[in-house]
């Protein structure tokens, strides 16, 4: 290898080792520790005895994780919430992606920009907008009351409904962008040919457009599912107190209970849950790296 390549490779390698690989290893290590009073609030996993390192791994946290239904329920709930949210994103995003892909060429980039634009206003401020819409004295209740459809405000904020709306709102572009990329590459002649061969428009969609867009669908669903599983902010701000997703549980264990080992064990569980969709994303052809690799 040529000498000048060494620093080019070493800088990002070292960065990733120090700030990504090592921290994850520490998380795994501390997940086997016991909480203790003091700073940091856990008993060391690694101890020195007569010059020998003694590793004391205590699986107690994982035992709690598996036995206490609270944690398993949170994991399951996170997966369900993320799954339903990505499905909702698909239902809303597919027609949008298709419409943009079939729009006149000159409009496409502008329409795409229109879809992305709201997401540059700041994540928290987008959530703010929904709080204003959904609260008891918010605009939706105000409008419904004024029209006379209801006589007492509906409970909208701090419900599962609000949480789903918030997640779909936050992650919709992650669905639209890969779908659009896939759909815009489809040769329109394929659909024309199917129509020419006697398929109805619905048949054309079901037998040609949809099957050919499936890699984009998979990529989009994974891109919504993955961040939604670990999401903390939206369930916290829009969901009810019962919406204990895994991200929220981790946060609570860490910040409120100061149980760092338990938080680490929850983090490892979250990592395990993410392995499957991450592998699916890797396979879906939307591999962002290494399409040139050996």
């Amino acid at each position: 290898m040529k000498l000048w390549r060494v620093p080019v490779l070493a800088v990002p390698w070292c960065w990733l080792l120090v700030f990504l690989v090592a921290p994850l290893a520490i998380v795994v290590g501390i997940s086997f520790a016991q909480p203790a009073d003091g700073i940091p609030p856990y008993a060391p996993v690694l101890a020195w005895h007569d010059g020998w390192p003694i590793l004391s791994l205590d699986p107690a946290n994982y035992a709690v994780l598996l036995q206490d239904r609270f944690y398993l329920a949170a994991l399951l709930r996170s997966v369900v919430v993320a799954g339903l949210s990505s499905l909702a994103c698909l239902l809303l995003g597919y027609p949008m992606a298709l419409a943009i892909a079939r729009a006149p060429a000159a409009w496409r980039s502008r329409l795409l920009l229109l879809v992305i634009l709201p997401f540059w206003t700041g994540f928290l401020l987008r959530v703010t907008a929904w709080i204003g819409l959904l609260r008891d004295d918010g605009w939706i209740n105000g409008a419904l009351l004024a029209v006379g459809l209801i006589h007492a405000p509906l409970r909208l904020l701090y419900t599962d409904f609000a949480m789903y709306v918030g997640i779909v709102y936050a992650y919709l572009p992650f669905m639209i962008l890969p779908l659009y990329a896939r759909l815009s590459k489809l040769d329109p002649a394929l659909e024309a040919a199917a129509g020419d061969l006697g398929e109805s428009p619905v048949g054309v969609f079901l037998r040609v457009t949809w099957p050919l867009s499936r890699p984009g669908v998979l990529a989009g669903m994974m891109l919504v599912f993955i961040p939604a599983v670990g999401e903390y902010v939206i369930p916290e701000l829009l969901g009810g107190p019962g919406a204990q997703t895994i991200g929220r549980v981790l946060w609570t264990e860490f910040f409120d209970n100061h149980d760092w080992p338990m938080a680490s064990a929850v983090a490892v569980a979250l990592l395990g849950v993410l392995l499957v969709p991450a592998a699916l994303l890797q396979r879906s052809g939307s591999r962002r790296f290494d399409d040139r690799g050996a």
Binding site: L9, P12, W13, L16, L17, V18, F19, L20, V21, A22, P23, L24, I26, V27, I30, I226, P227, V229, G230, E231, Y232, G247, L250, W251, F254, W260, A263, S264, A267, L270, L271, L274, A278, L281, Q282, R288, F289, D290, G293
Partner: peptide, 25 residues
């Protein structure tokens, strides 16, 4: 291969995991 995987990891790791692990570091 390992480099590619490590580089792709921050794209899929949840914020809470990145935050917790870096704090522990």
């Amino acid at each position: 291969a390992a480099f590619t995987a490590a580089l792709a990891a921050p794209l899929v790791l949840p914020d809470v995991l990145i935050g917790l692990s870096l704090l522990l570091l």
